[in-house]
């Protein structure tokens, strides 16, 4: 008994180890590397390409932060996490930040003690079914077998939705998107449910994407965004304002193409403040004055990142929808750089 408890505490203490360190910003600078928690593989969001280089929407966020903090967007160590392991990885200090299709919820923010720095993708949960099932609405799914990733908001929403609609279902709990895909394609489940962006991304990798449809129902709000440990406000500020800079960059028309030009100085004071031509903000964040310039230069502004990884010209083919800028009827909006 004694030894087991001892070992248990030993194990948990190891889990907890890195957490007590002073400032994450200093740690990252000292390590010369940003440890960024991403998915185990979800095309368009975070997945290694054929050369083993991580690519995707979430990946670009990691790179933007690394560019701002370390001056080099490649100085990122990507740590693949599953729905179940991601929070432990962040809480224990195994990663410095998470950019992993993670929904901002009350309990994660308040009880699990994380700080969500913003929303980079407004999403909602949906259902995908094979076309040959002949289902056109989620209301027809009574009695279906449903693949879900465990440790997600998805499984809670699913339970609520089926209960509210007085339907039954058979949950098949699954660890990663790859396994879910395999089960779904093998027909071991009738339905795959997760964030609709995830469904679109998964469907895009199928051999015959046209044999599958995403049902029209959106059963939840899934505001996805990067998050850090609670209690390190300086680090939270860094990640938050890097995210904001990407959106503001799009808003102000700063693109990877014209950023060099603009950083020589413009007659728009806000652009000057962001790009450090008018110095001050970098110092306040604990970074140099070029931080935001490098962050935007790394993969472009929000719009460029979206278009390159998820947009209509990619196989995933998502439209901006809610994720358009506020000036174009969407919800993406950065607080002012002032």
């Amino acid at each position: 008994m004694k030894t087991t408890v001892f070992l248990g505490i030993a194990a948990s203490a190891c889990l907890m180890a890195g957490a007590a360190s002073a400032g994450t910003l200093d740690d990252v600078k000292q390590a010369g590397e940003l440890k960024c928690g991403v998915t185990t593989g979800l095309a368009g969001f975070a997945a290694p390409d054929s050369n083993g280089v991580w690519q995707g929407f979430d990946v670009d966020y990691c790179r933007a932060v690394a560019a701002a903090v370390l001056g080099d967007p490649t100085k990122v160590k990507f740590v693949p996490t599953t729905g179940q392991t991601r929070f432990t990885a962040l809480a224990s200090g195994e990663v410095d930040m998470l950019a992993r299709n993670t929904t901002w919820t009350f309990s994660r923010d308040v009880d699990l003690k994380f700080t969500f720095v913003g929303i980079n993708y407004y999403d909602g949960q949906g259902f995908m079914v094979p076309k040959k099932l002949g289902v056109s609405s989620a209301k027809e799914l009574d009695g279906a077998t449903v693949c879900i990733q465990t440790g997600t908001t998805t499984e809670l929403n699913l339970a609520d939705y089926f209960k509210a609609n007085n339907m039954k279902y058979e949950p098949v709990p699954i660890e990663t998107n790859a396994e879910a895909q395999q089960q779904f394609l093998a027909g071991a489940c009738d339905v795959y449910t997760t964030d609709r962006s995830g469904l679109a991304a998964t469907r895009a990798t199928f051999a015959k994407p046209d044999d599958y449809v995403v049902l029209p129902e959106v059963i939840s709000k899934e505001p996805l965004g990067p998050l850090v440990r609670q209690g390190d406000d300086q680090w939270a500020d860094v990640v938050r304002w890097v995210s904001n800079a990407l959106v503001e960059g799009e808003d102000l028309g700063i693109t990877s193409a014209n950023i060099e030009e603009l950083s020589k100085g413009t007659n728009n004071p806000e652009i000057n403040r962001i790009l450090g031509t008018d110095p001050g903000f970098g110092k306040m964040l604990g970074l140099d004055e070029q931080w935001a310039k490098r962050a935007i230069a790394a993969n472009g502004n929000y719009g460029e990142i979206f278009a390159a990884n998820l947009g209509e010209s990619t196989p995933i083919g998502l439209s901006r929808g809610l994720n358009a800028l506020w000036t174009q009827g969407g919800l993406q909006y950065s607080p002012p750089f002032r």
Partner: peptide, 16 residues
């Protein structure tokens, strides 16, 4: 040790 741990964030308690 899986879903409960993850949803509640009680790693230490659940593991012990």
């Amino acid at each position: 040790g899986g879903i409960t741990l993850n949803q509640t964030g009680r790693e230490l308690e659940a593991m012990l």
